[in-house]
Simulated assay, not measured.
Amino acid sequence: MTKPHDLGEYYLNTRTGEIEEGKVSGSLNRMGPYPSREAAAEAYENAANRNEAWDEADKAWNDDE
């Protein structure tokens, strides 16, 4: 159930791929909050970019040993 204080926060529903305003879906099926619909829509891409950067940093760290 969306509460008034949740409005203005956007989430990506990871099950449906839909952008939702407020906490419409359960926590297991959402990423966020994001400040805009656009930011929520970019959530998967941003997460993938961060994961790639972390993997590269881990590889560099392990190569230094």
Results as ranks from 00 to 15, higher is better:
45 E>C: 06
7 L>T: 00
21 E>Q: 04
39 A>V: 09
42 E>G: 11
20 E>K: 11
57 A>N: 07
20 E>M: 09
14 T>D: 02
18 E>R: 05
57 A>Q: 11
23 K>G: 04
39 A>M: 11
22 G>Y: 02
1 M>V: 13
24 V>L: 15
20 E>D: 15
54 W>A: 05
10 Y>A: 04
14 T>S: 15
30 R>G: 02
28 L>Y: 04
47 A>C: 01
15 R>Y: 07
38 E>T: 08
38 E>I: 06
1 M>T: 12
52 E>S: 10
23 K>E: 07
12 L>S: 06
35 P>A: 14
20 E>T: 11
22 G>N: 05
54 W>V: 03
61 W>H: 11
42 E>S: 14
51 N>E: 13
16 T>V: 09
20 E>W: 10
42 E>M: 13
2 T>F: 05
1 M>R: 10
28 L>T: 08
17 G>C: 02
37 R>D: 01
48 A>G: 03
41 A>Q: 10
9 E>F: 12
21 E>L: 00
38 E>P: 01
64 D>I: 08
34 Y>I: 06
12 L>V: 07
19 I>C: 06
64 D>H: 09
17 G>N: 00
9 E>C: 09
65 E>H: 07
15 R>G: 05
4 P>W: 08
47 A>E: 00
65 E>F: 11
49 N>Q: 12
40 A>K: 00
35 P>G: 12
50 R>Y: 00
45 E>D: 14
31 M>S: 12
40 A>T: 04
10 Y>N: 05
54 W>C: 03
38 E>D: 08
21 E>P: 02
30 R>F: 08
64 D>C: 05
29 N>F: 10
11 Y>C: 05
38 E>W: 00
23 K>Q: 13
63 D>W: 10
51 N>C: 03
18 E>S: 08
7 L>A: 01
21 E>Y: 01
45 E>R: 15
49 N>E: 15
10 Y>F: 15
58 D>F: 03
8 G>D: 00
36 S>D: 01
39 A>I: 09
9 E>T: 12
2 T>M: 04
38 E>M: 01
8 G>R: 08
50 R>V: 00
4 P>K: 04
46 N>K: 15
20 E>A: 07
58 D>A: 11
